[in-house]
Write a protein that binds this DNA or RNA. Sequence first.
RNA 1: CCAGACGGCUGGACGGUCGCCCUUGCUUUAUUGUGGGGGAGGAAAGUCCGGGCUCCACGAAAAAACGGUGCCGGGUAACGCCCGGCGGGGGCGACCCCAGGGAAAGUGCCACAGAAAGCAAACCGCCUGUCUUGCGAGGUAGGUAAGGGUGAAAGGGUGCGGUAAGAGCGCACCGCGCGGCUGGUAACAGUCGUGGCAGGGUAAACCCCACCGGGAGCAAAACCGAAUAGGGAUGGCGUGUCGGCGCCGGCUUCGGCUGGAACCUGACAGGCGUGUUCGCGCCGCCGUCCGGGUAGGUUGCACGAGGCGUCCGGCAACGGACGUCCCAGAUGAAUGACCGUCCAGCGCCGCCAAAUAUGGGCCGCGGCGUGGACAGAACCCGGCUUACAGGCCGUCUGGCGCC
RNA 2: GCACCCGUAGCUCAGCUGGAUAGAGCGCUGCCCUCCGAAGGCAGAGGUCGCACGUUCGAAUCGUGCCGGGUGCG
Length: 139
Amino acid sequence: MRHDELGLVRLKRRADFLRVARTGRRHAAPGLVLQVADGRAESGRAGKGVEASVDASVGIGFTASKKVGNAVARNRVKRRLRAAVTEVMPKHAAPGRDYVLIGRKATLRRPYADLLADLLVALRRTKSLAPGNGKQATP
RNA sequence: CCAGACGGCUGGACGGUCGCCCUUGCUUUAUUGUGGGGGAGGAAAGUCCGGGCUCCACGAAAAAACGGUGCCGGGUAACGCCCGGCGGGGGCGACCCCAGGGAAAGUGCCACAGAAAGCAAACCGCCUGUCUUGCGAGGUAGGUAAGGGUGAAAGGGUGCGGUAAGAGCGCACCGCGCGGCUGGUAACAGUCGUGGCAGGGUAAACCCCACCGGGAGCAAAACCGAAUAGGGAUGGCGUGUCGGCGCCGGCUUCGGCUGGAACCUGACAGGCGUGUUCGCGCCGCCGUCCGGGUAGGUUGCACGAGGCGUCCGGCAACGGACGUCCCAGAUGAAUGACCGUCCAGCGCCGCCAAAUAUGGGCCGCGGCGUGGACAGAACCCGGCUUACAGGCCGUCUGGCGCC
RNA sequence: GCACCCGUAGCUCAGCUGGAUAGAGCGCUGCCCUCCGAAGGCAGAGGUCGCACGUUCGAAUCGUGCCGGGUGCG
């Protein structure tokens, strides 16, 4: 995976999403829904042998159901969420956890600044803000 | 200028910050770093047809069944697609629409109404003969289908002749059937003769005829291949009884008898679970190897019925020759996120000219706001269908005005 | 990627094969019954038959194309 310096790893397996949905905490913001699960998924780890950075990495998954709209709308929702994640998560997300972001209908038209704020609020409400940078919220 | 018909093209532009996928040069232990190049559509959609490709089946079959197609000719790899024509219908017109084979092979159906709904017949009628008669009419034997009425549809239509009344009974025109001739590759059209009307509609009812179709689908298919469970082979360890081979001890008439321990081998037992019974199922532990094969990965996978240009043939669809180009390859699925400026468009406000006032409006100018349709490749092509803010171009038709 | 199914009253469904009246139950409204309510009885309202085009004298029904919802297989 390319995200090594950021510590971000994409979740790609259905089992990972199900694990986060079953065991995790969730918070619904106007622009998105965040689910957090403690611990990293087995299949998402960056290789079995590598040991040091495993626990510090952050798993990220995106979901947009058919309720959001057609394929164009779903893809656009996931792209906006991905852009928001690369901006926020490396600095503010607690490491060693899996996060799943669920797109909503409002994600499509919500202003980008509000979307970033939604993500920070969701992190705080799920007690997943990184301890060091918790205070300095929006950049 | 207005209204309309048809065909085609396009479907935001530029810049900044941060990113994604593929490919390639150099570099690196390393897809680590860095530079170059490329990166959605006309419908990528719906999945309605036709192919390529792969596997399965098979006799290069054929037939049945089932499904589909259905005027003629051409195009094409093929098609249910396209082009040209024919016939029918609509429109003043440009033009548009049509599942458009067969109803004299057979079966079914045609409600209600009506006498009768398909072999023809006759309810009210009309006419003739005859009988009765109270002179109004009625009965009866026939002729008839013009008129009435019902219906979506009543066994050609209109007119004239004709007749007791009528009737293709006769004639003219129209329609229809049959036969010939002419034109056309053909569908078909025209024309001549003839028949005297026979054959109602429905095949998007069954059906008949002609033609087409083997099945599945890139999650096809090929290769590599963990972990776990299970399968096979093999080695070691392991419970009881009995038999067998060999070993040891005792006795011996040397033929045997008897006792013992471990191991090999065969058979049976046994144990556990379930069940009322019959019965059924399972049989241990460790190691090595093998095959099938899952997750996962690689290939398939992008040079193709390919794009563009010129010329030639053809009314056209399209075909041919030459030149030139390489043009997406993702897989929780890349091709973007955010911001600024502009350009169309839309809305509001303001300005403006003639001899004046009031009101309204077009073009133009200025300001502010708003603001970019439908939609995302998933093996690949050819079509069809559906969605689509707007903008542009060409050809043509009708109307108005001017020269 | 395939293979199918269903859209009819507010809800659940019949009617479609085989064409001609659009129906049933629950619900709703009014009246009766009761001191009041429930139950019961009587009466009534309520329908683009998903949409469009076509075939037919006639379409909920037949044909074609769309729209929406759902199911199964790999």
